[in-house]
Amino acid sequence: MLATKSNSYTFQKGGIWYFSRRVPTDLWRHYRTGRIAYSLRTKSIRDARVRAMNDAAKLDRHWHILRISSDDLPGKHLLADAVQEPQAETSIDDHSFKAAVVVYLRLKGNDRPPTFEAAVKRSCGYLIDCCGMKDLHDYLRSDATQFRDYLFAKGLNGSSVARIFGTVRAVINLAISEFGLSIINPFTNVYFDQSQGVKKRIPVKPEDIEKVQEECYKADDEKRWLIALVADTGIRLGEGAGLLRSDFVEQDGILCVNIRPHSWRSLKTLSSERLVPLVGSSKWAAERILAQSTDSRFAFPNYNDGKRTNANSASAALNKWLKSKIGQGYTIHSFRHSMRDRLRAVECPSEIIDQIGGWLTHGVGNSYGKGYPEAVLLKFMNKIASIDPV
């Protein structure tokens, strides 16, 4: 007799736990069946849950890659050979947009995650669909403005259009330099409203931060540790989800989280690499993580397979839980916006705020030295620390 349980993706049969998950309808063509099911080879519900969540995260990653690599991507049929063979040499006289993509991926794609290549492919595919595959000399300013209008007509918001334009502009700029062309990139300085269609993220209110933290202390599990860590540090979700247990370190007697790049999770900018003192719920989360008896080196093993941090899976699960606790309008990234406001409220200098959050501080002088010591950062972090666990 089949016995199903409430925990996700598992069912029990004959005392053995099995994994079961439906294949999304848009990916059916990649499978011979509409459901993936197999034995987890354990009678332990605890082991089954861990294995099932790890396998579900791997599937999410694989399905994400399948989707962004789909044959339905715009212009992919024109770029397929270029993207699949980024190391291939192109003719010295070939100054086509396809050749530009080959050069860009060859020079910029080393040691980058699969999503980097997919993003380049997707952005360049949009241009090909809109304006066609041309020699770089043949793209005009009118193509750039047509491309802008085309992207907005597809329903993309201003920030997405800016990101796509940035990729296309970078591909062409690099090719112009590498090919030694005397042309002006027509995709430079194209005006568009970057705020169009963009929803402003709302910082989490102080009382809602405390409510979330109280719920995290009650649940006391991996997902809530990650939320609690983000809530009182303002780190990016991907930064937190990709941490190792060894990234929690003591610096001059202060427990800190060491935000540094890893092969499975890069950082957004150079300024993102930093040490952040832990206070309040973030310190509680670190202590709970370090207290666990586990063979995994990852702080959040359910979101890491050793090759990639599945921040998308983490975001979907955590945002859903947040909405159930404090309502619509908030996402996990909202805590990052809150952190800046909370530090402003205690009159924290902007340079210290930037160092804590890993934001870029402009000015030549700011690149000198090592920055503020952790004791100074801790002084302001202690001023904003929310409720302690009860």
Rank of each mutant, 00 (worst) to 15 (best):
M1S: 12
T4L: 15
N7F: 15
Y9E: 03
F11R: 02
W17K: 01
W17P: 00
F19R: 01
R21C: 11
R22S: 13
V23I: 15
L27S: 03
R29F: 13
R29C: 06
R29K: 15
R32E: 13
R32G: 12
R32F: 12
R35Y: 07
I36G: 03
L40E: 03
R41S: 13
R41H: 15
R41A: 14
K43A: 14
V50M: 13
A52D: 08
A56N: 07
H62C: 07
L78C: 10
A80Q: 10
A80L: 14
Q84M: 11
Q84S: 10
E85W: 13
P86E: 07
A88I: 12
E89T: 12
T90K: 13
D93R: 11
S96F: 09
S96Q: 07
S96N: 06
K98D: 06
A119L: 14
V120G: 09
R122Y: 11
C124L: 04
G132H: 09
Y139E: 04
R141G: 12
R141S: 07
F147N: 01
D149P: 01
L151M: 06
S160D: 00
R163I: 00
R163A: 13
G166Y: 05
R169A: 02
I172T: 01
L174E: 06
I176D: 01
S177E: 12
E178P: 00
L181A: 01
S182R: 10
I183Y: 01
I184G: 00
N185D: 01
F187T: 01
D193S: 08
S195C: 03
V198G: 04
K200M: 08
I202T: 12
E210Q: 10
K211E: 09
E214P: 00
A219I: 14
E222A: 09
R224N: 07
A228C: 09
D232P: 02
I235K: 02
L237G: 02
L237D: 00
G240T: 07
A241Y: 08
A241V: 14
L244A: 04
E250D: 09
V257S: 03
N258W: 15
R260I: 10
S263P: 00
S263I: 12
R265F: 04
T269A: 03
P277H: 05
G280H: 07
S282R: 03
A285S: 09
A286C: 11
E287D: 05
Q292C: 06
S296G: 08
R297W: 07
F298R: 04
N302I: 15
G306T: 08
N310Y: 13
N310A: 10
A314S: 06
A317V: 13
L318F: 10
K320C: 08
Y330L: 09
I332E: 06
H333K: 08
F335N: 01
R340T: 11
D341H: 10
D341S: 12
R344K: 14
E347A: 13
C348K: 07
I352D: 00
I353F: 06
H362M: 10
V364S: 13
G365Q: 11
Y368M: 08
K370E: 11
K370C: 05
K370G: 00
Y372W: 10
L377W: 06
F380I: 05
M381T: 05
K383N: 07
A385E: 03
D388H: 11
